[in-house]
Simulated scan of single mutants.
Amino acid sequence: MPDWYLILNGVLIGIVVAAPIGPVNLICIRRTLAYGRTNGFVSGLGAAIGDAVFATVAAFGLTALSTTLVAVGDWLQAIGGFFLIGLGVHTFLHIPVDTKEVNVKTTGKLAAAVMATFVLTITNPATMLGFVAIFGGVGGLVTTEPSMLTAGLLVVAVFVGSALWWLGVTLTVGLLRDRMTDQTLILINRISGVLIVSFGIFIIGRLIYMSVA
């Protein structure tokens, strides 16, 4: 019989780690407005897959991998920071397409949408440490020797929770899409681009400051 307490906690953890407004939320909102709900939701799934990877590390107690991720954390964050800067510039310059043309023009871009948010999520090892802390503090969800079934169930629940968050975001934002003019969408792209670049510059700047401090 499924452990519904474990499943519920896993789903809630997935929602909690996905909810904070940051570059991934911003990207999913922007892609939903530019390309439609499907593209926005698929973008969110990239982040959900990244969350599931970190949840796997925490739930299965993969200490060696966890230590490695922390050891190369600065390099991963630097990659993520430069990736954000490039993505922000692209977003700023991009002209949104008409939603009627979305299915024809963006089908081949779904894989790229998943990869972009997955890279941004996986290059933030602090998320993995957050999972370890959350799992350890919620009813003893992580033990020194968790069963494979328990750990696997928890990882799946985290993925589902994260995916549900992105589904809710894209459905909500999608309701506003048809009410916006092309000029409004272009303005949103400009603002989103500036904010995404700002996130990237902040990450790089913080790493430089920490290295010289």
Rank of each mutant, 00 (worst) to 15 (best):
G50N: 08
G46K: 00
S66C: 03
V42M: 05
A52L: 11
T56G: 15
F54N: 06
I49W: 11
A55F: 02
V42Q: 01
D51P: 00
T63V: 14
A59L: 12
A64N: 15
T63W: 13
F60A: 07
G61V: 06
T56D: 15
G50Q: 00
A64Q: 12
L69V: 07
L65C: 07
A71D: 10
V70T: 10
F54R: 03
V42L: 07
V70S: 07
V70D: 03
V57L: 10
G44Y: 00
F54T: 00
G61T: 03
T63P: 09
F54D: 02
A47V: 08
A48E: 03
L65A: 11
A48V: 07
L45A: 12
A64D: 14
A48F: 06
A59I: 11
G61S: 09
V53T: 07
A55R: 06
F60D: 12
T67M: 10
S66T: 02
L65N: 07
T68Y: 15
A71F: 09
T56C: 14
T56L: 15
V72W: 09
A71W: 13
G61R: 04
T68N: 09
A52F: 11
L45R: 04
G46F: 00
V53A: 15
T68I: 10
A59T: 05
V72T: 11
L45W: 12
L62P: 05
F60K: 13
I49E: 05
A48P: 08
A71G: 10
A47M: 14
T67D: 15
S43L: 07
T67G: 11
A64C: 14
G44K: 03
T56M: 14
G50Y: 01
S43N: 08
A52R: 07
A55C: 08
G50T: 03
A47W: 02
G46C: 08
G46V: 11
V72Y: 08
A55D: 10
A55M: 06
A52P: 06
F60W: 12
F54K: 00
T68A: 12
A48N: 04
A59Y: 06
A48K: 04
D51K: 01
F54V: 05
V70R: 09
G61P: 00
A55L: 11
A58F: 01
G46N: 06
T56P: 12
G46Q: 01
A52V: 07
A59C: 09
G46Y: 00
T67I: 15
G44I: 00
L62A: 02
G46T: 02
V70Q: 07
F60L: 13
F60M: 11
V72A: 14
L65V: 03
G50D: 01
F60E: 10
V53P: 02
D51S: 05
